[in-house]
Simulated scan of single mutants.
Amino acid sequence: MTYSSHPFLRANENRPVHAGFDDDTTALIKALGFTPRRYAAETVIVRQGENKDRMFVVESGWGCIAHELAGGQRQILDFALKGDIVLPQFNGGGALETFVALTDLSVLVASTKTFALAAMKSPPLFSVILEALVQNGAVIAQHLTNVGRRSALGRSAHLFLELIARLERVGAVNHDSFECPLTQYDLADVLGLTPIHVNRMLRELRERKFLEFRHGHVRMIDRAGLIKFAGFAGEYVES
């Protein structure tokens, strides 16, 4: 998932990292066949069932990867954030997941065939992708645990702690606060709750003085207390 700390993709330690890339690495990846693309908010980039075998590196914006169910419901499996690698799963019939831009989204994109050829030229790039896939599995495991075993309040707290940890790694957090474009419907679809239940959980987190989520902005009020309450161990978001 997030790969910005890998030595192949690490920028100068004394300056901010943009999507995990320094200029030389960006040029290399583009030379290996990855091309820049921009998608408007709410664009379906890969639809479940489509035979579009591509991979993406997120440079800016928010996206989500979801499994769509009959009747219009969906389960959000993960969010695609700055510095993430998105590799939708495929079988013989097409994509198993839908990849959607939640905000305006800038990515580098290549076919998996192009990536395979690129990896032959650049083993470190192949290593980065493997690490990203391992980390993606760890994130999905935590989301499954959220839905299956954590309380509604616990899973809500855990998700916000995961988001701030991931965003912190790419310089998108300021004084324990970050911009968050997720709606209560998005949160409901990742947490396995109803939007009304999500609203109650957000109110309870605010009343307990753990965090505040207003107008697309999350502010951690008592991050240490929230970590203790949620039993959050953030090693799984580290590379």
Rank of each mutant, 00 (worst) to 15 (best):
R37H: 14
L117M: 10
I196S: 13
G93V: 07
Y185T: 12
I164L: 04
T183M: 07
S177G: 15
R208D: 08
V139H: 08
G92N: 12
G154A: 13
M120I: 01
L9N: 01
D84L: 05
R208M: 13
V218S: 01
V107G: 03
E97V: 09
L87I: 11
R38V: 09
P16E: 08
N146S: 11
F90V: 09
L81Y: 02
S4D: 01
A101Q: 08
R15Q: 13
F34V: 03
F213M: 10
T2L: 09
G92T: 11
T43D: 14
Q142F: 05
F126P: 01
A11S: 15
V218T: 00
F8V: 04
L102T: 13
L105G: 08
S111H: 08
R169K: 12
H217T: 05
I164S: 07
G234R: 02
F79A: 03
F115L: 10
V134N: 07
G216E: 09
L108Y: 11
S5G: 00
T114D: 10
S4I: 06
Q73E: 14
L167G: 07
S177R: 11
I227Q: 13
N91T: 10
L163C: 05
L108G: 03
T103S: 15
N146Y: 10
M55S: 06
L144K: 14
V107W: 04
R47Y: 05
T112W: 10
K228W: 02
S156F: 08
L191C: 02
F160R: 05
L105Q: 04
V218W: 04
M1V: 07
R223N: 07
L9M: 14
T43Y: 06
L102Y: 07
S106V: 08
E207M: 08
V237P: 01
G216R: 07
Q73G: 13
N146K: 06
L102R: 13
T35W: 00
G94K: 04
Q73V: 01
A40I: 02
L159E: 00
D78L: 04
L96S: 09
F213K: 05
A95N: 08
V107P: 05
H175V: 01
L191G: 02
L191S: 02
A172L: 15
G93L: 14
I65G: 02
F56N: 03
Y185H: 11
K82W: 00
L87C: 09
A31C: 06
R54Q: 12
V147P: 02
I45M: 02
